[in-house]
């Protein structure tokens, strides 16, 4: 099979980008989408043209590096998979495929189809953790976790941090991502002491990064390669409301001197 690609090319963060169209060489339907790009790039290189820059790493749907909005849908036509798990058999001979980077103010483009997702890291640095020092943990079985909670926490924790939710949302909102992180820790007994402080810090950082707000369109859930549920957003909203009403904790002065 052969396809034609309409690809976003942009030399660097400051350059203006444009679409360019390329005809693919003969492809095997069992190729992954990224392998198709490899093949196209090999050909471009052999012709002396700069290959298309795109993000990828594990190629098994877990590292969250690959991106690409394919014909308007982040991670391509299938549900519950990442771009790296999309195969050319999902397209037909002669198709024109439009390939774009994630587009969001908080994900500036670095080159071609590569964008910078450090904003996700900063949200987690603001509070996406349980403050436990190495070595201070009690025996693992001294903290029982009801199976339903553990399973639900796991549903949330599956998030691979790819940013497809942001890419899909008409508001470029990061609510699904942040809520998955908040819910994962908030559902575990270990996460309770910092539950409200955490949600407040992470949501505030999310706002600072320039993501949009949630208008419950459902796009994020529809494109999430791990099919993370909108329910987690409700859960986060609940916790954030409590945090907002509580206000900032009382500042303790002094300490254990003496």
């Amino acid at each position: 099979m052969k396809v034609s690609l309409k690809v976003w090319r942009q030399k660097n963060a400051n350059a203006a980008g444009e679409f360019k169209t390329y005809a693919s060489p003969e492809l095997n339907p069992n190729m992954s989408f990224l392998e198709m790009l490899d093949v196209v790039n090999e050909e471009l290189s052999n012709r002396g043209e700069d290959p298309i820059a795109f993000d990828h790493d594990c190629r098994e749907g877990i590292c969250g590096t690959c991106s690409l909005v394919i014909d308007g849908k982040p991670h391509g036509p299938h549900k519950g998979v990442a771009t790296c798990q999309t195969y050319m058999r999902s397209f037909s001979n002669g198709d024109q495929i439009v390939i774009e980077p994630w587009r969001a103010k908080a994900f500036p483009i670095v080159k071609d189809l590569v964008c910078d997702r450090k904003s996700f890291d900063r949200i987690q640095q603001a509070g996406g953790f349980i403050s436990v020092r190495t070595g201070s943990a009690p025996d693992a079985n001294s903290i029982p976790v009801p199976k339903e909670n553990a399973d639900l926490a796991m549903d949330a924790a599956q998030c691979i941090g790819c940013g497809a939710c942001v890419a899909a949302c008409k508001n470029a909102s990061a609510m699904l991502f942040v809520s998955a992180k908040v819910s994962h820790l908030g559902l575990m007994p270990q996460g309770q002491p910092e539950r409200y402080k955490r949600v407040k810090a992470m949501v505030d950082q999310m706002d600072t990064e320039g993501f949009g707000a949630c208008t419950v369109t459902g796009s994020c859930e529809a494109v999430c390669p791990k099919e993370i549920s909108l329910d987690f957003i409700a859960r986060m909203n609940r916790d954030y409301a409590v945090a907002l009403i509580q206000g900032d904790p009382k500042q303790v002065v002094g300490g254990g001197a003496g």
């Binding site: 953790f129 349980i130 436990v132 190495t134 070595g135 201070s136 943990a137 009690p138 025996d139 693992a140 903290i143 029982p144 976790v145 009801p146 199976k147 553990a150 926490a153 796991m154 924790a157 994962h184 820790l185 575990m188 270990q190 996460g191």
Partner: peptide
């Protein structure tokens, strides 16, 4: 112990 305290959602039995 360390990972459980960090909130790693290990698989659990019904007793928690």
């Amino acid at each position: 112990d360390q990972c459980a305290a960090q909130g790693v959602p290990f698989a659990r039995e019904y007793g928690g």
